[in-house]
């Protein structure tokens, strides 16, 4: 798909809104600098794209929680004229959105933009990252979250992914990293994908475990030979493998939109 096509822009816009921005929650939970930026502020930001998606984020008490509806009840409301217009914000390019304050609070706006800058720093391409192990762990944590929330977007919006999922058996997939607390799950019910972080309440139908965060990072960013890694047992897969294959197919497509 051409990077200039409207379908590409629209999918990227959904990924930015529903997969990348929700990573602010992991950023706030795990990065002290993010919590310092937020302080004890508590506010809501809504984002709407003309003829496109909208969402509202409640930010405060160390969390950033997404609500996909009711954008006009937020304290600060961003309007974007198009998907491309919104994508520029997440790509760190100059952009001037429409802004509406329910109550005048430029401090909230500045805090949000500072958090966004910090998120971009943690998501920047690997080659530019700090060598600090903690920084890299957080990078992987954010990527894992983006991959799983992005999975749902591609499964719903991208024709190639939709076609692939039609052949995939239903079930619950769990992805974990050995020796760490990182885990994410995705459920396919034959019609929709839902995803989340952590260990699900029910037993998974397929379990994928990465040997460590580095292997997970390389796999998520398509820098690792996945078949060889399974043979070398750097990645372990058990259970309903066609489900994992289908979900991995989509996850591996995310870097076509988001380059990290």
């Amino acid at each position: 798909m051409s990077q200039q096509s409207s379908e590409y822009s629209e999918i990227l816009c959904h990924l930015h809104l529903f997969a990348v921005l929700p990573a602010l929650d992991d950023l706030l939970k795990n990065v002290p600098e993010a919590r310092r930026i937020l302080g004890n502020r508590n506010f809501t930001i809504s984002i709407s794209v003309k003829n496109g998606p909208k969402a509202i984020f409640s930010i405060g008490e160390g969390r950033c929680l997404l609500n996909e509806s009711r954008p006009h009840e937020a304290g600060v409301h961003f309007f974007f004229q198009s998907s491309n217009h919104f994508n520029r914000l997440l790509q760190g390019r100059p952009v001037l959105p429409g802004i509406e304050f329910k109550t005048w609070s430029p401090d909230s706006l500045i805090t949000f933009l500072r958090l966004l800058n910090l998120l971009r720093k943690y998501l920047r391409p690997r080659e530019l990252l700090s060598n600090d192990a903690n920084f890299r762990d957080n990078h992987v944590r954010l990527l894992l979250g983006i991959a799983f929330f992005g999975l749902r977007q591609l499964a719903e919006l991208e024709e190639v992914s939709q076609r692939r999922m039609l052949e995939v058996p239903s079930g619950l997939a769990l992805f974990t990293i050995d020796g760490g607390d990182l885990a994410a799950w995705a459920q396919w019910n034959g019609h929709h994908v839902t995803a989340g972080k952590g260990i699900p309440d029910t037993q998974p139908d397929v379990k994928i475990s990465f040997k460590n965060a580095e292997v997970a990072y390389l796999a998520l960013s398509e820098r690792l030979d996945p078949m060889a890694s399974v043979g070398l047992q750097q990645i372990k897969a058990e259970g309903l493998l066609p489900l994992a294959d289908g979900l991995s197919f989509i996850i591996e497509r995310i870097p076509r939109y988001l380059s990290v």
Binding site: D225, M227, A228, V230, G231, L232, Q233, K236, L241
Partner: peptide, 16 residues
């Protein structure tokens, strides 16, 4: 690529 590809790939069986 893959070490062994296709139906004989360890990934298609029981690696290890």
């Amino acid at each position: 690529p893959g070490g062994i590809y296709g139906h004989a790939s360890p990934a298609a069986g029981l690696p290890g």
